[in-house]
Amino acid sequence: MTLYYFHLRDGEDILLDPEGRDLGSMEAIREATLREARSIISSDSLEGKVKLSYRLDVEDESGKVVHRLQFEDAVSLQRGRVPE
């Protein structure tokens, strides 16, 4: 069993993952990270305030960062306005 810790940073604060979770492969780690980011973004967007300045750091038990995801890279935004 290998535990990976998902820490959420926003430049000032860090929300530490006290528990970690057992994931089998790098692919599973990448998938879980993306799901985390998209889930938080989607729920925040319902509140009307999305923070794309978050970053998720996934660390192994020794504290080494094995994967990192900027929320900005988790979704593609199509910006623009329909002309009046």
Partner: peptide
């Protein structure tokens, strides 16, 4: 319960659960 189990019961993800608990 772990964050993962709370996530499984609320349809959220573990980090989201962690942030909400905070």
């Amino acid at each position: 319960l772990t964050q993962e189990e709370l996530a499984d019961s609320t349809g959220l993800t573990p980090v989201h659960v962690n942030r909400t608990l905070k």
